[in-house]
Design a protein around this nucleic acid. Structure first.
Lengths: 246, 246
DNA sequence: AAGGCTTAAATGTCAGACATATGAAAATCG
DNA sequence: CGATTTTCATATGTCTGACATTTAAGCCTT
């Protein structure tokens, strides 16, 4: 764990990298305590402030946690899915919004990934997953539901579908793709007719899952993708017409 | 952008969260300059050190960049895929290694996601993608190639497959899944015979892509998954036998 | 007008101090 | 002797002030 003393700037980044590499390489194991800030400062021959900035960088990535008081210090964090989820979603959201990713591209990716889960979910979904999906479908049919709540329910529905595959790695990857889409989905105003169509397709998906029919789930997902894309196209065209006309 | 002055500890985390929220919400736009550290310190009524720790947290997430000198400062970063890739890979790698995700689970997720790209890649792959894949297949057949280099080439091959889909969102999501698998893949010793079989399947994939035959790509990927899983099972069994016998 | 010089503003780093939390050891009391 | 309280050492959290370094803009000279 060494840094280059000749590079004058960005010492805290170098120190963070050194410690991060040690964690990734397994030199520092989970729950192991790092030396105290004062000791690290001495080891790297920098001030305590610089060490602290490095530790904050690592804390921002959930790689370490800190405890105050005697026998406190910085400890290597066991990175769990629940810690990584928010980060993944924030990053995905920003990637979409800052890079002008089209609705079409994001939507295509999302449904392609969901279709990847379909056969697994059809084989393994528990009654619990199915019950969640049925409940969300019911919620989506409630009159007076706001567009935002409708989108929330939509996310919950698809999340249950993905979780049904029983593969945490898939669930993690999909969380980013599905939840990051939400701001884009919120652009769409869901009329009563379009809600009914979406609910019809959701029901088809749930039915197919209940019957353990993976390819039927895939077909329904494809139909849902096509329909969602057409809704988005309508919104865009309407906006373009309003801009041109007014 | 406010913080709770009553919470005594973790001021830097609160400040980081306030700024992060402002960026995600679009209050701070790309390339906009944040106030100087001194000004932020005054606004939040904390010391400059605390502000700096908050900024380092944001820098660790690539949300801001800093420039020194006059007219320098902290600027909202345009989060691009190339910045998000390493983070995604590091996180995925640690999630796998720290949560004892089985080879089976990781492998299943990886190939499920790759199959999701197959139809798109079959439709859109350019001659460039195909050329990259053929080149990697050739490299994989070179005698004297180390296991590590073989794995590297494997990653490059699959990456070309995924990129062929022409969807940056998919490429980003897949990068984590594919590259994070590498440490697990490196456990496997590839014999001459297993390399030949893998090359055979890679060739089948490339041929199917060349013919724009999406379902053939999916089939070949499934066969490759089955074969990889069987190789991993052999390694595990051998190890278990050695442990029991010795 | 072009080029070099000065300067101001900003981040990067350091040193030392105090505040606060916390576990462990020491002291006290029943 | 055992339980409880007090004390204390240690570690992080925060503040202050200082200096180093980088960099762009303005000034000045030629």
């Amino acid at each position: 764990m060494k840094i280059d003393p000749n590079s004058p700037a960005d010492l805290s980044a170098q120190i963070a990298k050194a410690i991060r590499d040690a964690i990734v390489a397994g030199v520092l194991i989970v729950d192991e305590r790092l030396p105290s800030e004062a000791e690290l400062a001495e080891q790297f021959d920098v001030s305590r402030s610089t060490v602290r900035e490095a530790l904050k960088r690592l804390a921002a990535q959930s790689l370490i946690r800190t405890q105050r008081g005697a026998s406190g210090g910085a400890f290597v964090n066991r990175l769990e899915y629940k810690d990584a989820y928010p980060q993944q979603i924030t990053t995905s959201t920003l990637l979409l919004s800052m890079n002008a990713v089209s609705f079409e591209t994001a939507c295509e990716a999302r449904y392609a990934l969901e279709r990847a889960c379909a056969p697994l979910s059809a084989a393994r979904r528990t009654p619990d997953h199915l019950a969640t999906m049925r409940a969300e479908i019911h919620r989506q049919g409630q009159p007076g539901l706001s567009d935002e709540s409708f989108c929330d329910s939509d996310v919950a529905f698809h999340r249950a579908l993905v979780d049904g595959a029983g593969n945490p790695v898939l669930s993690y990857q999909l969380a980013g793709a599905v939840e990051a889409m939400q701001p884009l989905m919120n652009m769409i105003t869901f009329t009563a007719r379009s809600r009914a169509e979406i609910i019809r397709l959701h029901t088809a998906i749930a039915d197919a899952l209940e019957a353990h029919d993976g390819s039927a789930v895939e077909s329904a997902l494809s139909a849902l993708e096509t329909y969602t894309q057409s809704l988005a196209r309508d919104v865009m065209e309407t906006r373009a017409r309003v801009r041109a006309g007014g």
